[in-house]
């Protein structure tokens, strides 16, 4: 009899745990967009964000897009997520890690012309960790392999 009640408790506990975790995960997945820390440029394009609404915009800084304005303290740059690109402007001191082809999260709002006016910039780090000697190597997100551009070109030609 002792064995039976023990089994009963095990089954009950397992059902309860599955139910609670299921409920938690459902709630978390329902939060999906609400809990997002930032909008990607494509989210802005698809959903539309009204001008003046305070949001965070996150993505990669497009290579060659950072341009210093005439006043010397304002920078203009483009943010992309690979699907859409949004022009942005920031006045102030950018963090050291704010670079082209690197992640950024900008806090601010869109103006009437669709330019994102940032009042704060955060640099976003990606999941790569590597020594300086490997900088410039191309990272393949699907294979997790590093290879130089030369290697990649050689592979393409083959």
């Amino acid at each position: 009899m002792a064995m039976k009640s023990k089994h009963q408790r095990l089954v009950l506990a397992v059902i309860a745990i599955i139910a609670v975790i299921g409920a938690g995960l459902l709630a978390a997945s329902a939060l999906k967009d609400e809990a997002a820390y930032f909008y990607a440029p494509n989210d802005v394009k698809v959903k539309g964000v009204e001008p003046g609404k305070a949001i965070r915009l996150g993505g990669m800084v497009v290579g060659g897009s950072i341009k210093k304005q005439a006043d010397g303290v304002t920078i203009a740059f483009d943010v992309t997520d690979g699907k859409a690109t949004v022009p942005a402007r920031f006045t102030g001191i950018a963090p050291d890690l704010f670079k082209e082809n690197s992640g950024v999260v900008a806090e601010g709002s869109f103006d009437d012309k669709g330019v994102f006016i940032a009042n704060n910039l955060l640099a976003k780090h990606d999941e790569r960790y590597m020594p300086r000697e490997l900088e410039g190597l191309e990272y393949n997100a699907t294979t997790h392999q590093m290879s130089s551009e030369r290697q990649m070109k050689a592979e393409q030609q083959q």
Binding site: A28, L31, A35, A36, Y37, F38, D126, E127, R128, Y129
Partner: peptide
């Protein structure tokens, strides 16, 4: 993975590690 977050994504997954061996 679910949400856009400031924290970077997972570096070590079943597919391997994006942390270079010398740092890992």
């Amino acid at each position: 993975v679910w949400w856009n977050s400031l924290h970077q994504g997972p570096s070590i997954t079943v597919r391997g590690s994006s942390i270079d061996g010398s740092i890992l």
